[in-house]
Amino acid sequence: MISLNLKKKLKSAGGQMVLDLKLTIEKGQFVTLFGESGAGKTSTLRMLSGLLKPDSGLIEVGETTWFNSDENIDLKPQQRKVGYVFQDYALFPNMSVRQNLEYALHKGQDKAIIGELLQFAELNELEQRKPETLSGGQKQRVALARALVQRPEILILDEPLSALDLKMRIKLQEYLLQVHRKYKLTTILVSHDIGEIVKLSDKVFELHKGRVIKKGAAADFFGLNKTSAKFRFSGEVLKIQKEDVIYIVSVLIGNDIVRVVSDPIEAAQLKVGDQVLVASKAFNPIIQKL
């Protein structure tokens, strides 16, 4: 179990902010920190991994104390068992893919894990390439594989998929889930993408101005369990159009645009850019092979 109780004065884009955070994460859970930019998500991850020092508070992971301001305990990032995937991937430009992974080995560690991770991340053919020659998705896989070399107990993912296109995102989401289960990790993700959060995480914490304002199981969190639908998709509202007495809402689901009829009261609650759930249960969908 990880328990965090952190206080830190932060300078964010909107001026000064006091981060005051209490949260506990069960071992083996996939947890997402959700919230607008500047809410303190990345700072929380940095404090957990030892890259940023809290003003006061406590970080306990399992039986060990990583940080305790009262007892002057502050483990260095080198001593904390954390795999960190940075938003910009932070691959070492002077090293090949394989060397990037090998650098992460700790002294005397068996090299076999490198081959295993290269295989798992489908990087075998790229192992001699330098990071600058890789695509975004490939870099992401290298960063993830590299974070796993030391067999961390905690995997930290700071918006790892935000720079990728939809197809690659979906593929890598699957991949993150596999990694989480295979290596029995406690995974902490920062993400803005509701579809991604629902798909990946067990639990969601919403941060606002440095505080946890809402938490819950992922599906409950976004109110998805209210409908017992036969099928449902999440998407983004592109356009709301009035036609006679009803409204037509165009929703982007994946790469497709779906038009849904909505009554004026419902439509009034929606605006362009909202994340919505499109569900249906009253009819049988037709499945046709393409």
């Binding site: 080198q78 960190y84 910009d88 070492f92 650098y103 590299r146 030391q150």
Partner: peptide
């Protein structure tokens, strides 16, 4: 250099010296 290069190396348990010699200076 992006600060994350250094930070990534630290989270991998590498000392400041090793990070300087193997990551920062070669880049």
């Amino acid at each position: 250099l992006p600060p994350t290069l250094k930070e990534a190396s630290y989270t991998m348990g590498k000392s400041k010296m090793k990070t300087l010699l193997k990551i920062l200076l070669p880049n």
